[in-house]
Design a protein around this nucleic acid. Structure first.
Lengths: 140, 140
DNA sequence: AATTTAATTGCAAATGATTAGCATTACTAA
DNA sequence: TTAGTAATGCTAATCATTTGCAATTAAATT
């Protein structure tokens, strides 16, 4: 089940290219939260001539098509993941860098409980928590 | 009531300089959520020779001293605000850019309700929601 | 108050992440 | 098959932030 098929792209006036197929494949497989550079590195393994610009352009496109989410951890670059159907968030360990996901219907919860959110039409909710996982906590 | 007095800095082996005083003053007054460049622009009104490096260095210092928080909206640069005592988060309007704050004890709520968060020692929780405020929603 | 010394500054240049310009390539529709 | 035009791969630009270093200057010491 491809993320975005040839037809879907064509319908939008876009083209299905080998580079895009490759990049989408990498994002889909890499269950983690890849950043542009990691995607680039993996892609070059298959297609050494592929450029970093293409990675960025494809990422922008997928973001616009609502296929991937861009995550902002406390870093200078972004991470990307395939859009999940279920609402979920991230918990990042400052010790080992591990990222734990958890599902939670936070946006509806907040909408109900936060007065300020009530007359807002909220389209994006981003939560990122960090701290130390059990293992790393012990080692300190 | 200065954010960080001369004594507090000296105790930490640091110096109290006019530049730092000015930058802290600007952050404290600018109730909003200033970015480095805005702070720089305001500071230059008073001290035209002050450099952007100094702004960044001071910001890093204040972050380390736990005096300011660095906020990551969905932008390529960061924003800064004086650390509040009360836990609060942000709601940003994608139409007019307005940022609304709301207080909410979210971290303890999540700690209680999210199993994955239970054995984590959470030190930072960041939430940012965006959407359209009532006024902007009408204009669409 | 004068002297010392090490933190801080300003400037310029470096870095890292991302974007843009443009000639060339290669999907697609006709 | 071909014409038309997205998309690619370069390289160079941009934006935000950091760094190196010589010149200042705050604060501890005399």
């Amino acid at each position: 089940m491809p993320i975005t098929g040839r037809k879907a792209l064509n319908r939008a006036g876009m083209r299905f290219t080998s580079q895009r197929a490759l990049i989408m494949e990498i994002i889909r497989r890499g269950r983690g939260h890849l950043d542009a550079d990691e995607i680039y590195r993996q892609a070059r393994g298959k297609e050494p001539r592929l450029s970093l610009s293409t990675v960025y352009r494809t990422l922008q496109m997928l973001k616009k098509l609502n296929v991937v989410d861009e995550l902002h951890f406390d870093e200078s670059h972004h991470h990307y993941e395939v859009k999940h159907s279920a609402e979920h968030y991230h918990l990042k360990c400052l010790g080992c860098g591990k990222v734990v996901e958890f599902s939670y219907p936070l946006s509806s919860y907040l909408k109900e409980n936060v007065p300020a959110a009530r007359d807002f039409d909220i389209t994006v909710t981003e939560v990122s928590m960090s701290g130390y996982c059990a293992r790393c906590r012990r080692g300190r």
